[in-house]
Design a protein around this nucleic acid. Structure first.
Length: 496
DNA sequence: TAACATT
């Protein structure tokens, strides 16, 4: 009697199961075969497929390697647009492995300029503790070169050199081993070592970076570090960020690589990506990384609210989990912010890229990191919840009078050099930490509907406005620095 | 580079 797993539940049953190599791949009941997959089946990510190919067109290509359990072309959640990639699960694990070795990077489908990608989806292979980030490679080192460099340490499941749109190497790669131990061995032997001599014919060389690839969580956290570091508003954090800045080159390299990979095609990470855009702090950090071209404002407002970690405070709920931040916020939105109140340097310039010039100091605060994250998410979650979707969340407290435009004198800011992608909601999110935002308005070209890259933010009190100027003027986003000034009073520049 | 509550 066969034991069959259906929906994760092991069952004894009397039905026969088809098999080719002693493996089950279908449950036969009468004339019908209910597709079954191996319990160790691998979900494959298929990339670089032409957007005109649907499931039915792709099926023949992949059926060659075995019975398909599930094949799904990824579509944009809102537009339904084909994303050029798919998930494929064979009934048999073996088929997936065969398809991967036969197809991955082996052929280029019509109309594509890169070879097809066939590899385990990122959702597979639990735990990223066997995936390595490799930095400081030579630009001309290929996947094959990297593979050769790492293959002595174990079985390589995946090896990808990160490339720009033009196909040029970014000088870094991901290498996934079949086990943590193998990955660790590679780190031990290769990290800090010299790159292959051929990479630097002139004798120049630089030491190889080999580290575990960041997990999604780490990526998100790092964005928050950068964001908060730039804001310079979480005073206990300034110290911590100094230490973090020491992470330096290897980390920023890693970040770039992962961002790139994500934007390119890692559909399995799309959910995480969209989360980061749901979270304005992460979104702004993402802007910092010059990924704003992909900013999806529709996604921001229309997607279901999904906190990027379990610690966020639900919108509109006064958090007691973060008293140090939540309590003062009721006063002017950010009591710890105003200058000259906390003994910290107040005029320090805003440093970009999360690298703070102050040396690392002993982190004496009990756990400022967690507090600040909680705080960040508190601010972050709130504004994302209303904006144009107040209809979608009718239970939201209607705090935002959309009509009310201008605050009292000294409360209105003019903001220039906004990222093109920023709308009212993002502008609001960016300034909410400094107080009660009465209105946030990005100016839009009426012909093109494009942002004019400037806007206004009004607070209900002048000190919030001053705090915002202090923190946000000069704040770098992408290649630009925000200009944040008091709006000119209406009667300014009038001769009399 | 310019740019300050619009149609």
């Amino acid at each position: 009697m066969a034991t069959v797993t259906v929906n994760g539940v092991q069952q004894e049953n009397g039905f026969s199961t088809t098999n080719s190599a002693g493996r089950m791949n279908g449950l036969v009941i009468g004339q019908n075969t209910i597709p079954m997959k191996d319990h160790d089946a691998i979900k494959l990510f298929i990339g670089q497929i032409p957007r005109n190919l649907e499931e039915k067109d792709l099926k023949p290509l992949f059926e060659e390697f075995g019975k398909i359990y599930e094949l799904t072309v990824l579509k944009d959640r809102f537009t339904g647009m084909h994303k050029g990639c798919a998930f494929l699960t064979y009934c048999a694990r073996e088929s997936a492995l065969k398809a991967q070795s036969a197809l991955h990077e082996q052929k280029t489908l019509p109309g594509m300029n890169r070879p097809i990608q066939v590899k385990p989806a990122d959702s597979e292979g639990r735990g990223e503790d066997r995936k390595l980030f490799v930095g400081m490679l030579g630009k001309q080192q290929s996947e094959e070169d990297v593979r050769r460099l790492f293959e002595t340490f174990g079985q390589i499941e995946e090896c990808t050199v990160l490339r720009g749109p033009d196909g040029a190497s970014k000088g870094c790669a991901f290498v996934k081993f079949s086990s943590h131990a193998e990955a660790q061995a590679a780190i031990n032997s290769l990290h800090g070592g010299q790159t292959m001599p051929c990479a630097y014919p002139q004798g120049a060389s630089s030491s190889l970076v080999v580290k575990f690839a960041d997990t999604d969580k780490e990526r998100t956290l790092r964005r928050m570090h950068q964001m908060a570091g730039q804001l310079g508003i979480f005073s206990p954090m300034t110290i911590q960020f100094g230490a973090y800045g020491a992470y330096s080159h290897a980390v920023s390299l890693g970040s770039t690589g992962e961002e790139t990979q994500m934007m390119q095609q890692q559909a399995a990470l799309m959910a995480a990506t969209q989360n980061s855009y749901l979270n304005p702090m992460a979104a702004i950090a993402a802007a910092q990384m010059q990924q704003m071209a992909a900013f999806n404002v529709n996604g921001l407002v229309a997607a279901p609210m999904t906190p990027s970690s379990g610690t966020s405070t639900p919108p509109g709920i006064n958090s007691t989990a973060v008293p140090s931040l939540a309590a003062p916020m009721g006063v002017n939105g950010f009591a710890s912010l105003p200058p000259q109140t906390n003994g910290q340097p107040t005029n320090e310039p805003i440093y970009t890229n999360g690298i703070h010039p102050y040396p690392a100091q002993s982190p004496t605060v009990s756990d400022p990191l967690q507090q600040a994250y909680a705080g960040v998410q508190h601010y972050a979650a709130y504004p994302a919840a209303y904006a144009p979707i107040s209809q979608a969340f009718p239970q939201q407290p209607a705090i935002i009078p959309q009509q009310q435009r201008e605050g009292p004198e000294g409360c209105n800011l003019f903001i220039y050099h906004l990222p093109q992608e920023f709308g009212d909601a993002e502008l609001m999110q960016m300034f909410l930490p400094f107080g009660n935002v009465i209105s946030a308005k990005v100016f839009v070209d009426r012909a093109t509907n494009q942002s004019k890259c400037f806007g206004f933010v009004s607070f209900d009190n002048p000190s919030s406005a001053q705090a915002a100027i202090q923190a946000m003027n000069g704040f770098q986003i992408g290649m630009k620095r925000l200009k944040v000034q008091l709006k000119r009073p209406k009667d300014a520049n009038r001769p009399y």
